[in-house]
Design a protein around this nucleic acid. Structure first.
Length: 480
RNA sequence: GGCGACGUGGCCAAGUGGUAAGGCAAGGCUCUGCAAAAGCCUGAUGCGCCGGUUCGAAUCCGGCCGUCGCCUCCA
């Protein structure tokens, strides 16, 4: 079984062959920590989380690096985003950065996103960035102008190869590109001199200043993954200028291919347009978690292929929730059967169906991490599992175990859409005993056809989020 | 203006040459004291439109229309 990935560099699906057999070096552009993480971040990092999970499931030793941008970049007005935020909050810039870095990790942890192996901070790698800029200056790819250093795009014939942009046709749209002190309008900053009011500043051979936006990724990727590594990920919205500039800087400085495979995820939109502060259609992950579980949010994100855009709405989330519940109900039904199962029993023929589901799932994931098809396979499996468990036969313990292992592996380990445990209140043992007690009282009411009392108990429990289901073999309950 | 992505049943969505996965919604049915859950059945003769290549195209090529993204900080 071979993994094939769509490489944006070259725009074609290719067989994935890592630089070093069995190992994968992967870099994904991380967030700028100047505000709370939003659901667009959720899409991007859940998508790459599944990529990493699948690579590891496939036996690769993955080194996953994702930066934290805590240096801040210039707004159009010339302001630094982090400094602007700090001013608004009456806080130190590094306080802002620390706060939102924590919020980011907390949100990702809640969403079950596996932490990167290394989360390098841009502010902690200023020397590495300066060194790379010096190399570019020595090689004639960059030039200094009164304390700032710019990359000269005309020295890199490959500039534009990722986004298919030519330097000479960037005019248009009625806009005149700003040249300022740059030699060419398309040149971009490697280092900027700090104006007096700029607090975030570092010493450099060119005076006090701060690094350009793109150089941090180049410097940190090189430091932790080497000049050439396997996968570079990010959002398509950063293909230009960020990713393009990363490639130019790195390949000119290192004289080596930068990333070999480029995987870019589609943007998340709200009502058909991209989420942005200016439009006010901004939803934080924390807000989304008020309405939906982490697993449902993941299932929603994974309902479309990572490279496609996805439109966020309560309706879309609700539909995803319904579909997810069907799968999770089967998992719970199976686990309940597992708890009371005896050795022996029937249904051994089902093991072949499980193997089929597993191999189909693997084929889907090996085809450019096709999670939506993976979920479809789980849905089909769920129909078969429900049929088996409701058929009335005594299902063999081994079969029940195999069913649970299949779900745990595919839905749990790979897609991350199974909760860690039964999500009920903290005092779960005592609560479970109380619910069972009420179910017994209700059973007596039902035996004497006292439907009013029976329904009252069911309705009251429902108000508390406890759902009762009367099955042929007794009443079961689940917490919402 | 340039670059790129996309357009599949009411909604979402997979499918890159061999005769349309899956989910949600809807209707019918089975089961049930009722409900819930679950299962079964129904539903695109057609995949934006028009041409072309092919024995055969949602899938390849050309043109057109439309939506979105990027070209300015953005995941």
């Amino acid at each position: 079984m071979t993994l094939r990935v769509y490489n944006v560099l070259g725009r074609e699906k290719q067989e994935f062959v890592p630089l070093e057999a069995g190992r994968v070096g992967m870099y994904v552009c991380g967030p700028t920590v100047y505000d709370d993480p939003h659901i667009g971040h959720a899409k991007t990092y859940v998508n790459f989380d599944v990529v990493v999970r699948w690579l590891r499931k496939s036996g690769y030793d993955v080194l996953y690096v994702q930066n934290i941008t805590d240096v801040g970049h210039l707004l159009e007005s010339g302001e630094d985003r982090i400094l602007k935020k700090a001013g608004q909050m009456h806080a130190k810039p590094m306080q802002i950065v620390e706060t939102y870095t924590r919020n980011y990790f907390q949100a990702m942890d809640t969403l079950g996103v596996t932490r990167p192996d290394i989360s390098p901070r841009a502010s902690g790698h200023i020397p590495e960035q300066i060194k790379m800029i010096e190399t570019l200056l020595q090689k004639g790819h960059a030039y200094e102008v009164s304390g700032s250093v710019y990359f000269d795009v005309t020295t890199d014939p490959d500039y534009g190869k990722l986004s298919n942009r030519r330097v000479d046709d960037q005019e248009g749209m009625g806009r005149v590109a700003e040249r300022g002190e740059k030699r060419n309008p398309e040149d971009f900053a490697l280092w900027k001199r700090a104006e007096p009011e700029h607090i975030l500043r570092w010493d450099s051979p060119w005076g006090e200043g701060f690094p350009g936006w793109h150089i941090e990724c180049s410097a940190m990727a090189r430091k932790y993954l080497g000049p050439t590594f396997d996968i570079h990920g990010g959002g398509v919205d950063n293909i230009f200028p960020h990713n393009e500039s990363e490639i130019a800087q790195s390949e000119c400085a290192n004289d080596a291919i930068f990333a070999r495979y480029w995987l870019l995820v589609g943007s998340l939109t709200v009502d058909g347009v991209k989420m942005s502060k200016s439009l006010g259609n901004f939803t934080t992950i924390e807000d989304a978690l008020q309405r939906h579980s982490p697993e449902v949010i993941r299932a929603f994100v994974l309902s479309a292929h990572y490279s496609n855009p996805i439109d966020f709405s309560d309706e879309a989330l609700s539909a995803a929730a319904k579909g997810w519940e069907r799968i999770y109900n089967a998992v719970r039904l199976n686990r309940r059967a597992l708890n009371t199962a005896q050795a022996g029993g029937d249904g051994n023929g089902f093991l072949a169906q499980l193997e089929k589901a597993k191999s189909d799932f693997a084929a889907a994931m090996d085809d450019d991490f096709n999670a939506p098809t993976g979920i479809a396979i789980l849905q089909e499996l769920t129909r078969e599992v429900n049929t088996l468990l409701n058929s009335g036969i005594t299902v063999a313990l081994d079969v029940l175990k195999a069913v649970d292992e299949t779900y745990t592996s595919l839905a749990g380990d790979v897609l991350g859409i199974l909760p860690a445990g039964n999500r009920v209140a903290g005092d779960s043992n005592r609560e479970a005993a109380l619910i069972d007690f009420l179910i017994n009282i209700r059973a007596q009411a039902r035996a004497s056809k006292n439907w009013a009392e029976s329904d009252r108990i069911r309705d009251e429990l429902a108000k508390m989020g406890i759902i009762l289901e009367d099955r042929a073999d007794g009443t079961v309950w689940k917490g919402m």
